[in-house]
Each structure stands twice: as structure tokens, then as C-alpha cells.
Design a protein around this nucleic acid. Structure first.
Length: 487
RNA sequence: GGUCCCAUCGUCUAGUCUGGUUAGGACGUCGGGUUUUCAUCCCGGAAAUCAGGGGUUCGAAUCCCCUUGGGACCGCCA
């Protein structure tokens, strides 16, 4: 032992990687890196029924996307693969056998029905539901006999009644009376260990020094400490994180919608923004600063500044941070990220970049650009004539001004077709637009912008015109005149 | 029901250890400015009797006790 800090994230691949898992991973990563230690990824796939490769893949992709690279694991294409519990069966078997031989664990042959009945009975009596079956008193010979006869059994750990206390790095002393626990099932058979057992074995074998996990694991801790003690393994430090909550203040789950990392990724949240947002849920630097890159978080991080109470997963705030990161991005980079959300055909990358540039200040998440910028890719715009009328503008007046716009634009050469030029040419006219007694540029700019975008809200008319090009711009002005004529 | 954890604006939180602040910041919200619209940007407002009650003290969000409320867990899931 060189005293190096080692943390781990241990997800089970039974669903898409969750935001809660991502935050736990982040805190483990931050603490490990802050202490100059290692961050390890261990896939807890002992549940063969529910574990799926697809989900495991999603976990790896999600963590990599967030920039949470783990420090070791089986080599795979020059990158570290994850450790998998399913590949460590022999290891668990060794420790399981040891506990069985020591008499600290035993085979239990109670049926699920019997256990259910027991639980129900205890609950009705107001007791803590726990295993108090008779199998604990079966002699080794009886256990072997039943196994030999083909009776299905599970392996239970004999919990000794005592007070187990541990020091939680976030919450301080926490004590439990294990007499209330009951004998926990630690394996279905020698080849199929269960969570509370495999965790203890792996955390020791992987030399984990700090177990940083969700608060929902607090009550598992005494069981794991007992197993640790029975196996004569050294203890680890625990830090139980406050939970991520839904709007109703209950643990964030599917009930609150799809909170998988991939869902956020698909909507166009940036990994840097997600990391920044997640870090500030339950932790703060002790200053007013709230924008941090991953390396900056590593520098600032400390377990002492982690909150005890749960934190609601506030989408509005994520949107704000995401918009902020989008605005601070290099346009080339943003355009590349937006490309998948825009139509592929007939658009060159320069034009795409120009379009994205118009939305850099307007996007909260990348996917929004599809709908916002759709009119750039449309053939003919469909909209109600009403849209073209600004405030108290009349149909006739608007028609007139559109004609004027067409005339002026017609005179602009292809080579002079830039936003600045168009503005220089049209603005003097716009200033005079409207009733002579109270002219306002809105009388011209609004219908022009509406004609070009077909929308109530969009970037400015000159910016759009530049991207659209002369031909398409004139076409749309013409189209607007027609729509007014038929209205 | 049992065990354990938690409690400052609607939300994320600073301040609590080492009592003395107009209880600070941010998101959101409302209003104003810039503006053809939306967004950005700038300015301003409302918003927490610090869950409640009792102590200790000249003084309590901060220290002590009680109560209440919320949450997590109680699986042959993790």
C-alpha cells in the first residue's frame, strides 16, 4: 500500500447510464484526481438476467463523453476497458468458500414464499422485516445433504448482533444496531455472488481507499463492514453523497422522465455544461464562482464542501449553463456539433457555419437549431398574411414597402451581397418607413424579416438575407407580396 | 411500521465549526434599457420571521434540548 487514493464508480448495466450515476462518477473522479489518485470503473454485472452489453457500452460512452476517463482496466484497443464482476467469479468463489468453511455463512433453503410470509408477518407486528429462519442452525452435513439431493439454496451471511459504527466523510459518525438487520443473502450459489458481498471483495482486491456513493447506500454499509470484518479485510473510508431529486423531492428516477445521459446528449447538451451543472448540485467552491471546467473543478474540489441535503435536478439551470457554454464556444466547433441536427443535402459547410453563427446566442441546446433554422432549408415559405403586418401597419402600406425592398435589393450586385452592404443600402429607407409623422424602421424591417423567415422570431433581416443569397431573398420578398395580394 | 439520513428565497447555495451581516450570490420570475422580432447584453425589483417551539446569552441562522416535516433503505436488484 503506497497510500495512494483510489476511488471507483460501480454501475450496473441494467439500463441507460443515469445522470445520478454520472454525478457520483464525477465526484469520485474529482476526489481521486484532486488527491493525485486513481479513478476506477467497475461494471457490476453479477445479475445475469438484467445486465446487458448494450447498457455497459452506454456507460463507457457516457463517461468518456463527459471526460471522466478511468485510470486502469484490461487493455482494449489502446484504451482501458472496464473491470467486470462477471469475469471475476473465481475470486468471489474463493472468499465465499472461506466464509462457508468458517461458518460465517451458510446455505439457506427457505423458499421465496416462506420469506415473503415472514416479512409480511414482521411488518404487521411493527418489526423490522429481516431473516430469522431456521437454516442458520443446519449442520454442515445437513446443508451438504440437501444440496446433494438437489434442493435449491442460497448463501446467507450470519450477521452478528452488535453496534457497527463508521465515520462518514460527509455526515460524521453513523451507527447501526445490526441485530435489526437479519442474515443477508450474499450469493445465489458459489458462482453467483450478490452485490453486498462482491462489493466488499472487489473494493479490497482493487485497493479502493474511498467509497463515494449515493446516500441510498448508507444502510448497506453496516452489512458490508460486517462481511469485511469476517473476511479480515481492512476497512475503507465512506462518503455518502446527497441524492439527486426530482421536482417532488423524491429520488430522481424514471418517474421523473428520461434522465439518461444519452437523452441529454441527444438533445444537444454539452458535456462541459453537464459536468459543470452536476458538480454544483450538492457541492460548491465556497465562493460565488459557478463556471468551472473539469480541470478547474479538480483543483477546487473537496469532500468537506459537499452538501448533506438532496438537490433537485433543475433543468432551467442546466439550460442556462448550457446556453452559456454554447455562447462561449468557437463557431467552427459549434457548427460541427450542430451539423447532425441540420438537413444534410445541398448545404455547404460554409453556409452551415453562417447559419449556426446566427443562432449561437439563441440556443439553449443544440437540437433546437433544427426547428429554429428550418426556414433556411425550405423551398417556399407558408404563413398567414397577418405575419407580415407590423403593429398598426396596413396591408397596402406593407405591400408598398415590400415592393420598395425588392427594388432596392434588385440593384445590389451578387458580389456586394453582404449583411453590412445590405444594411447600408436599406437602412436609410427603413428610417423613413411608416406614416410621415412618426416614421419607424419597424415598418420595413419587420415585414422584411417575416418574409424571409416566415417566423415571428428570428435573427435580423440582413443577416438572414446574406445567408439566403440574392436569388432566394428576392424570391421570398416576391412570395410575400403575393401572399398579401391574395389575403 | 422499523432503522438511518436531512432541513437558509420557488430552485442551487454562501454564512453554522470560531454567536454580532441590511442573511450574500446564481438560476428562474417580474419591471426597465438596447432592439423590427426573438435571443444576447446592461440596469433594477419582488422573493428566505434561516421548518417550529423552548432554552443558554447583552446578542442565536449559528450553541443545547424537544417537536414537526421530508427523504432513503428494509430483494435470491445494485
Amino acid at each position: 500500500m503506497d497510500g495512494k487514493v483510489r476511488t471507483r464508480i460501480a454501475p450496473s448495466p441494467t439500463g441507460w447510464a443515469h445522470m445520478g450515476t454520472a454525478r457520483t462518477a464525477l465526484f469520485n473522479y474529482l476526489f481521486a484526481k484532486k488527491e493525485g489518485g486513481d479513478f476506477i470503473l467497475r461494471i457490476e454485472d453479477t445479475d445475469k438476467e438484467r445486465s446487458q452489453k448494450e447498457y455497459e457500452q452506454d456507460v463507457l460512452e457516457s463517461f468518456r463523453w463527459l471526460g471522466l476517463e478511468w485510470d486502469e482496466g484490461p487493455e482494449k484497443n489502446g484504451k482501458y476497458g472496464p473491470y467486470r464482476q462477471s469475469e471475476r467469479t473465481e475470486l468471489y468463489k474463493k472468499y465465499l468458500t472461506k466464509l462457508l468453511e468458517q461458518g460465517r455463512a451458510y446455505w439457506c433453503f427457505c423458499t421465496p414464499e416462506e420469506l415473503e410470509a415472514q416479512r409480511a408477518h414482521q411488518m404487521s407486528l411493527g418489526e423490522a422485516p429481516r431473516y430469522k429462519g431456521a437454516c442458520r442452525n443446519l449442520s454442515p452435513q445437513e446443508q451438504q445433504g440437501r444440496l446433494a439431493s438437489g434442493t435449491r439454496g442460497v448463501i446467507r451471511f450470519a450477521v452478528e448482533p452488535k453496534t457497527v459504527a463508521f465515520h462518514d466523510l460527509i455526515r460524521g459518525e453513523i451507527a447501526f444496531d445490526t441485530g435489526l438487520l437479519g442474515d443477508v443473502v450474499i450469493a445465489k450459489d458459489l458462482e453467483t455472488p450478490l452485490y453486498n458481498f462482491s462489493v466488499v471483495v472487489d473494493d479490497f482486491e482493487m485497493q479502493i481507499t474511498h467509497v463515494i456513493r449515493g446516500e441510498d447506500h448508507i444502510t448497506n454499509t453496516p452489512r458490508q463492514i460486517l462481511i469485511q470484518e469476517a473476511l479480515e479485510l481492512p476497512g475503507v473510508q465512506y462518503a455518502h453523497l446527497p441524492l439527486l431529486l426530482g421536482e417532488d423531492r423524491s429520488k430522481l428516477s424514471k418517474r421523473h422522465g428520461d434522465n439518461s445521459v444519452r437523452a441529454f446528449r441527444q438533445q444537444g447538451y454539452l458535456p462541459e455544461a453537464v459536468v459543470n451543472f452536476l458538480a454544483l448540485l450538492g457541492w460548491n467552491p465556497g465562493s460565488d464562482r459557478e463556471i468551472f471546467s473539469l480541470p478547474e473543478l479538480v483543483k477546487e474540489f473537496s469532500l468537506e464542501r459537499i452538501q448533506k441535503g438532496g438537490a433537485i435536478f433543475n433543468l432551467k439551470r442546466l439550460d442556462w449553463i448550457n446556453g452559456l457554454y454554447i455562447r462561449h464556444m468557437r463557431l467552427e466547433e459549434l457548427a460541427a456539433l450542430c451539423a447532425p441536427y441540420l438537413p444534410r443535402d445541398d448545404v455547404d459547410s460554409e453556409k452551415q457555419k453562417a447559419i449556426v453563427g446566427l443562432y449561437q446566442e439563441r440556443l439553449k441546446k443544440l437540437a433546437e437549431i433544427a426547428e429554429l433554422a428550418d426556414f433556411f432549408f425550405a423551398d417556399t415559405l407558408q404563413y398567414d398574411a397577418e405575419l407580415l403586418l407590423w403593429k398598426d401597419a396596413t396591408k397596402e402600406g406593407t405591400q408598398e414597402i415590400l415592393e420598395k425592398i425588392r427594388e432596392l435589393l434588385n440593384g445590389v450586385g451578387e458580389s456586394e451581397w453582404t449583411k453590412d452592404n445590405l444594411e447600408k443600402i436599406l437602412m436609410p429607407e427603413a428610417e423613413k418607413a411608416g406614416p410621415p409623422e412618426k416614421p419607424n424602421r419597424g415598418y420595413m424591417l419587420w415585414p422584411m424579416r417575416a418574409a424571409l423567415s416566415g417566423k415571428k422570431a428570428s435573427p435580423g433581416p440582413f443577416e438572414i438575407a446574406e445567408v439566403l443569397g440574392k436569388e432566394k431573398t428576392l424570391e421570398r420578398i416576391q412570395n410575400a407580396i403575393k401572399i398579401l395580394a391574395y389575403a
